[in-house]
Simulated assay, not measured.
Amino acid sequence: MPTLLPDQIDYPHLLQQFLESLPHAAFICSADGTILYANSEAQTTFGHVPNWFCDRSLSIFFLPEDTEIFCRNLLRLAWNKGAVNEEAMLLRRNGTRFMAMIHLRKYDHEAQPLLLLHVQDIDRQKQMENVLQELGYQDLLRVANGVGHEIRNPLLIIGGYLRKMYASCKATDEDDASYRCIVDNLRKIENIVRKIEFFTHPPKPALNSTSTEQVVEASVASLAREMRAAEVRCSIDVEPMQLLMDQGLITKVVCILLENALEILPRGGEIRVTGHCRSSWYVFSVQDNGPGIPEEHLPSIFHPFFSTKPQGAGIDLAILKRIIDNHDGQAHVLSKPGQGARFDIFLPLERRRSIRLTSIEPDQQSASAQP
């Protein structure tokens, strides 16, 4: 197949094809926020056919109180810094509101600079979080803590007597197999109890300047043997940076995501671990090419004791969420059945300014082209 030269590639057409492949609403906008193109998912999210959006301002998505300052600040931040990610309450065609994650990125097209807008509907996720809080999240922690404490003591007694009995008897081969099976399952229960205790009493992060590369390399190295055994390939692309975080806890987070991917990947699967700056965040991402996650399970994926796996306890991703919350970060998942899954961990580079209350001044070097 002949190689295409750069001047033979139809970049605008490729960009449109890429936006159409996204599972969420996506738009191409001019520098002042005028919408030039909307993908087909925009209709699913907002209720308007794609052509309706053209030549309209993206401020039509926002609440009236956010159109003057917040919307304009998003445009200026994307223009000045190259990209911005923010949560916002947006409007659908029928007037209903929904919570969304907005990803706005500058795209330097040769004809004119453009902005790429990606809108992820996270309304169901936020609703589930609110329901958990209303039901008494602290009560859940107290119950989990009590269960962990009540199970641990009997486990220690059972394990001690079992080992004593086994050592004092003449065991057959069948007895040996039964003993190993019992011990293995006791260890599994002990491991679940330890996770419950960690979930109910997570250590306070000891924030230190830590290399992002070291975190990822240590995580991948700890699971290298399991990856080789499963013939799973793992690629790494991490932007080196010193970030204020607890190295041990964030390494644990990446390990949880790697273990989660390994459990569902078929032999010969692929995992990709990346780390890059996005606006005011540093984002660790772990992506696999496994079976994906059903859409109805996504809002509950970080909830304690929720699992899509028959043997899963549903505690690992809940632990991850608590660690990231304690780092003032965010955890998100993107997935479609049959297309794998990607978990994004957002850690703050610094405390963000309030961009809803104070206008941000445009970059003086290119102020004439900005909104």
Results as ranks from 00 to 15, higher is better:
S222C: 08
A144K: 08
F284V: 10
E231L: 10
I323G: 01
S335D: 05
G160F: 01
G329L: 11
P50T: 07
E190Q: 13
E295Y: 03
S285I: 01
I323D: 01
A177T: 13
P291Y: 02
F198W: 06
S280A: 12
K106P: 01
Q287V: 04
I35E: 07
A177D: 12
S366D: 09
N130F: 03
V49N: 07
Q365C: 05
Q370N: 11
R233H: 13
E296N: 06
L357V: 08
L22I: 05
C54F: 00
E270H: 15
A144L: 15
V215G: 02
S359G: 12
Y107W: 15
K81C: 08
P304S: 13
R194N: 14
I256P: 01
R97P: 00
S335P: 07
V333M: 03
Y11P: 00
H297F: 00
G268I: 08
I355L: 10
I319H: 02
S209K: 11
F199L: 15
L244M: 14
H332K: 03
R352D: 06
R105C: 15
F53H: 06
R272L: 12
A26M: 07
V273D: 08
T274F: 01
P205K: 09
V286L: 10
S366K: 08
A221Q: 12
F18D: 00
R267F: 07
V238L: 09
Q364K: 11
G312R: 02
E361H: 05
T212Y: 03
Y166P: 01
M89Q: 15
H13N: 07
A367V: 14
A144R: 07
A144V: 13
N39E: 10
K170Q: 15
R56I: 02
D66I: 06
R72T: 15
A78Q: 02
V183H: 02
V131S: 04
L22H: 03
C255H: 03
D121L: 04
I9N: 05
Y37F: 15
Q125E: 04
E129F: 00
L249K: 06
F46S: 12
I122R: 03
D32C: 05
L14M: 11
Q242S: 15
E174T: 14
P310T: 07
E217L: 13
D288H: 05
E41H: 12
R180T: 12
N289E: 12
P64Y: 06
I192K: 06
S280M: 08
P299D: 03
R180Q: 15
S40Q: 14
I102F: 04
V84H: 09
I192L: 12
